[in-house]
């Protein structure tokens, strides 16, 4: 818009947008605030917003009682491991589809996407059986593999759309300049692809971190990540709002922060490049 907007209109926009934004964000804000209250203050009526006695006690209790670190560590390994593994497998595939396309490329891409659409519940029992058979039930390795597989189509697609934006002529120029395949990848392709790969990693880490079907159904104790840890709070015991809030805050804080960094690339990843 190459036109100046009246300050009045801008003020109305601002007020409206902030109001709605805060309303949408409120459940998260409330959870974070509650995590610093005592249990009694957490359920007070009328609710207390800010003038309560700030305490870190809930965090301490949650950590002590539930071995929070173990769940956190499982989440990190499952989300991180599946993302790294997925990237290693997807980069060559996406590279070849973007730069050496054949008639089948489009079909392969769409077919990959279709595997992502497979309803998990439809294959739940076979996977469960296979996990029992292979001794993968409640193991981090098993979940890393499953997470990698369910996110692989998204990883390939995101990388493909990023690679596609690197003009082919630049790679040809590198070839004309005497670069071997190895040098071409090292000096030209990689530096240009790094931003795309980074945002792919970020989004897939988030998706894997939040995944709550396989993590709930294929883990029990040893490999349970934060999603399962939180679900264990679903049967209440006495006053537990503040502790629930503390546990929730710890589970979502890392992802909220990562998510804010990735919001620009989010759209492309979530729509398989169809909206940029």
């Amino acid at each position: 818009m190459a036109r100046s907007v009246t300050t009045r209109r801008k003020m109305i926009n601002t007020a409206l947008a902030w109001g709605i934004g805060l309303l949408i964000f409120f459940p998260i804000l409330w959870t974070i605030l509650t995590s610093f209250k005592t249990e009694a203050q957490a359920i007070a009526n009328p609710p207390i917003f800010l003038n309560f006695d700030w305490t870190l006690e809930n965090y301490a209790v949650v950590q002590e009682r539930s071995d929070y670190m173990k769940f956190l560590w499982n989440s990190v390994i499952i989300a991180g491991g599946s993302t790294i593994l997925g990237i290693i497998i997807a980069v060559p595939a996406a590279w070849s589809m973007a730069f050496v396309p054949s008639k089948a490329t489009k079909d392969i891409l769409l077919w990959m996407l279709s595997t992502k659409m497979l309803p998990a519940v439809g294959v739940l029992y076979p996977i469960y059986l296979l996990f029992v058979e292979l001794g993968l039930l409640d193991s981090r390795a098993g979940l890393v593999i499953v997470m990698m597989l369910i996110n692989l189509p998204i990883i390939v697609w995101m990388l493909y759309t990023y690679f596609k934006e690197i003009p082919g002529e630049i790679l040809e120029a590198a070839r004309m300049d005497g670069a071997e395949l190895k040098e071409e990848i090292l000096y030209v392709l990689t530096p240009m692809a790094v931003p795309g790969i980074a945002s792919t990693i970020l989004l897939n880490f988030i998706l894997a971190w939040n995944e709550a079907f396989w993590t709930l159904n294929l883990t029990a104790v040893d490999a349970a990540p934060l999603t399962a840890f939180i679900a264990s709070y679903s049967s209440p015991e006495g006053l537990f709002y503040a502790k629930l809030s503390a546990a929730s805050t710890m589970a979502i804080a890392p992802i909220l922060i990562l998510g804010w960094f990735s919001q620009k690339q989010l759209v492309r990843g979530l729509t398989f490049g169809a909206v940029k």
Binding site: I20, G21, I24, P27, A231
Partner: peptide
């Protein structure tokens, strides 16, 4: 629309998407 603090509002609006489903259901 033009406004002040657009970036922050955007972040506020997007945030629920990053909350893991078990957390949002329980909260």
């Amino acid at each position: 629309q033009p406004m002040w603090g657009q970036g922050v509002v955007r972040i506020l609006v997007i945030a629920p998407f990053f909350v893991m489903p078990t957390v949002s259901a329980l909260v």
